[in-house]
Amino acid sequence: MSIDTDGRKVAVITGASQGIGAGLVEGYRKHGYAVVATSRGIESSQDPDVLTVRGDIADPATAERVVAAAVERFGRVDTLVNNAGVFVAKPFTDFTLADYELTTGVNLGGFFRITQLAVERMLAQGGGGHVVQITTSLVDHADSAVTSVLASLTKGGLQSATKALAIEYAGRGIRSNAVALGIVNTPMHPAEYHPTLAAMHPLGRMGEISDVVEAVLYLERSPFVTGDVLHVDGGQSAGR
């Protein structure tokens, strides 16, 4: 049975158990949103306004459960942040079919069904909504030091879809934006590699989770911004 949110907005965040996703959950809560957080290994939350749903976002059944849970618990969906993603770096001819299926499954399949369901819900409840994709700056600036064809294939597709969604639903109040990242300081990057990774950015440092959260929340607070790809990459997309 859904609860009365008293006009409070509800954000759904994928890949939410750690790193950027966990930061986004905290950021949206600080701005008064109820949050539905999902990932494969996410634990239950002690916050009654954070509902966690375990599941592989590449499986359409997970998307169905997440959106149904959001509606049952909080009554609505106002924002979807498609944060879940995988990055596999190999020379192009070394990619395996398993690499391809994993990357397309999470990065594209994990976007497709949950975004369909979230947009359907936003349309049904009225009042518009917001969809945000987390992508990579490598889409806009290929780097010979980073072999990233599968990342560019999938995240580049998300950036194009971001613009298409923005135009398709602009007249119905649903905005769509993307945040394209450089290398962000998360637990997936061992400390001994930080100096090398920092040097790959013109600003001379890695991004922080707070940089990403502030960028997403900027877009959330900007009702006249849609179809935008906001680069949070330390200047990488400008050149080096």
Rank of each mutant, 00 (worst) to 15 (best):
L165M: 05
A170S: 10
N185W: 13
L165D: 00
Q125Y: 05
H201D: 08
P195W: 03
P223F: 02
G171K: 05
M200A: 13
T104E: 10
L117T: 00
I174L: 01
E120P: 09
L117S: 01
F224M: 15
M200G: 06
A145T: 12
L138P: 08
G157M: 04
Y169H: 10
Y169R: 00
E168Y: 08
G182A: 01
D94N: 14
G171L: 05
I209T: 09
P187Y: 00
E101M: 10
S148V: 07
G110M: 09
F112Y: 15
S144I: 13
A180S: 15
L181R: 01
H141K: 15
T104F: 13
T196R: 15
E208N: 11
A89R: 14
P223N: 03
P190N: 05
T154Q: 03
T115G: 07
F95M: 11
T154P: 06
L219S: 01
T103Q: 09
E208M: 13
H194Q: 02
P202C: 10
T186H: 03
M122K: 00
L138G: 08
P223M: 03
G105C: 08
M200L: 11
S160L: 15
K90T: 04
H194D: 05
Q159F: 09
S148H: 08
S222W: 02
I134C: 05
P190D: 08
E192Y: 15
F224W: 15
V149N: 12
A89P: 12
R172Y: 07
T226C: 05
E220Y: 03
L165N: 00
A199Q: 02
Q125T: 14
L219D: 00
G156Q: 06
N107A: 07
A151G: 14
A199T: 04
V179G: 09
E214T: 10
A118Y: 06
T104P: 06
D211K: 11
D143Q: 14
K155D: 06
T93F: 14
T115M: 07
A215Q: 02
V212E: 01
I167T: 15
A170I: 08
I167W: 15
Q116P: 04
D99V: 07
V212G: 02
G204D: 09
M206G: 07
R221I: 08
L203M: 12
T93E: 15
L203H: 10
F111T: 11
T135W: 06
A191V: 12
A145V: 10
H141G: 11
Q125F: 05
A170R: 08
V216M: 01
T186W: 06
G129W: 04
A166I: 03
S137G: 12
R175M: 06
V149W: 11
S148E: 08
T96H: 12
S176L: 00
V149G: 11
L150Y: 06
F111W: 11
R205K: 12
V146A: 11
G204C: 09
P223A: 02
P91L: 02
A142G: 15
P91V: 05
A98I: 10
T162F: 05
L219E: 00
V119S: 01
F224A: 14
F95E: 14
G182S: 04
Q159H: 10
E101N: 13
G109F: 03
A161S: 09
G207K: 02
T115Q: 06
M122H: 00
G127V: 04
G157P: 05
E214R: 13
S148C: 10
Y169N: 04
S148R: 05
P187K: 03
L102A: 13
L153S: 12
N177L: 04
A151Y: 10
V216H: 01
